[in-house]
Design a binder for these strands. Structure first.
Length: 322
DNA sequence: AAGTCCTACAACCGCCAGCCT
DNA sequence: AAGGCTGGCGGTTGTAGGACT
């Protein structure tokens, strides 16, 4: 019997057994949680029967993994998580479950939904395919650096508010910052070495820094929103930036450490030139969309911050650095 | 206030690989 | 070796609720 035949057979069996579909009720959730608490998970079909649920094993598994599991993290995707998703997706594509391994508490389904609703939306606004080189470049050279900047900005604000110390050291060789994330993760990011000198972004210490910026975290858009969900299980995250955080041992301590996320050292100015040439439109017009667009990539003009950011970009553009 | 549109996300579906008999 | 079963994955759909007109 082929796969389709098998599926039909399964479906018929399910019909015969009058299995329930659609949203789960609180009672069903309770049954499932109770059963798993006592007997553990796995063997989902028999689990479903034994727990007295009129659901497929698949449905039970999905409900447990995506919703009922105690370590499922609720709340909006944070900036740090957005950054990680963009980076890992650029590495692996639509390998949602693999990407989810690197975001504790987040499910593949949630990440997939985030990608479809937020990222693909922006690709649509740019009138380019989400898999196109143009959009990938936009993410890599504008969106992701922007996220880094916002993370640092939010971190600096939080630190100032808490009157605790953040480690910002300024030396003649460059500016290195410690980005403290909402999960007490930290990212060492060297503006000058990783991006600034190569691309003219954030390269000048008296130009863009969290200290001299008037950046205020605002919920104006996907790119400006910031919400750090309460951590339901704090101990789960402790030490997650250490080696144990990364299930793929081949990447431990090398490619995936945050300080390497934006190591664009292999990229040349010609690459950016080519990138711009590939676009028929002005780079910034293309990114920002028409002035009337209310939900463009940066929501230009909606907040002082975004206007400020655009000015910085235009300044860099005019100076030929970008 | 009512209707329509949009967004986010839960849930389902088909396919596949691996294991077991 | 072949067929069946199970779990896992990525793609897609349905829908509740908020935003907009």
């Amino acid at each position: 019997m082929d796969e389709k035949g098998r599926s039909l057979k399964n479906n018929n069996m399910e019909d015969e057994m009058d299995l329930k579909r659609g949203p789960w009720t609180a009672e069903e959730d309770f049954k499932l949680m109770n059963y798993i608490a006592t007997n553990g998970e796995g063997r989902w079909n028999s689990l479903s029967r034994c727990a007295g649920l009129q659901r497929t094993g698949k449905s039970c598994r999905l409900r447990w993994l995506n919703y009922l599991r105690p370590d499922v993290r609720r709340g909006n995707i944070t900036l740090e998580e957005q950054l990680l998703i963009l980076e890992l997706h650029s590495r692996w594509g639509n390998r949602w479950s693999k990407i989810a391994q690197y975001l504790p508490g987040r499910t593949d389904n949630e990440i997939k939904n985030y990608w479809r609703t937020r990222v693909q939306k922006h690709a649509k606004q740019l009138k380019c395919d989400v898999n196109s080189q143009q959009f990938k470049d936009t993410m890599k050279y504008l969106w992701m650096p922007r996220l880094v900047e916002r993370i640092q900005s939010a971190s600096a604000s939080a630190a100032a508010a808490a009157t605790t110390t953040t480690t910002n050291t300024t030396g003649s060789a460059g500016t290195s910052s410690c980005i403290t994330t909402s999960n007490n993760q930290f990212m060492n990011y060297d503006y000058n070495n990783n991006m600034g000198q190569q691309y003219g972004v954030m390269s000048n210490n008296d130009y863009i820094t969290p200290e001299n910026s008037s950046v205020a975290v605002s919920p104006a858009s996907d790119l400006t929103e910031y919400y750090s969900a309460p951590n339901p299980n704090p101990e789960y995250y402790s030490g997650q930036m250490g080696n144990s955080y990364y299930p793929d041992q081949n990447l431990v301590g090398s490619q995936l450490l945050p300080e390497n996320y934006f190591d664009y050292s292999g990229l040349l100015d010609e690459d950016l030139t080519t990138m711009q040439e590939q676009s028929n439109l002005n780079w910034f017009e293309n990114i920002n969309g028409p002035a009337s667009s209310s939900d463009s990539l940066w929501n230009i003009g909606e907040t002082d911050e975004d206007f400020w950011f655009l000015q910085q970009q235009q300044h860099l553009n005019n100076n030929g650095s970008f």
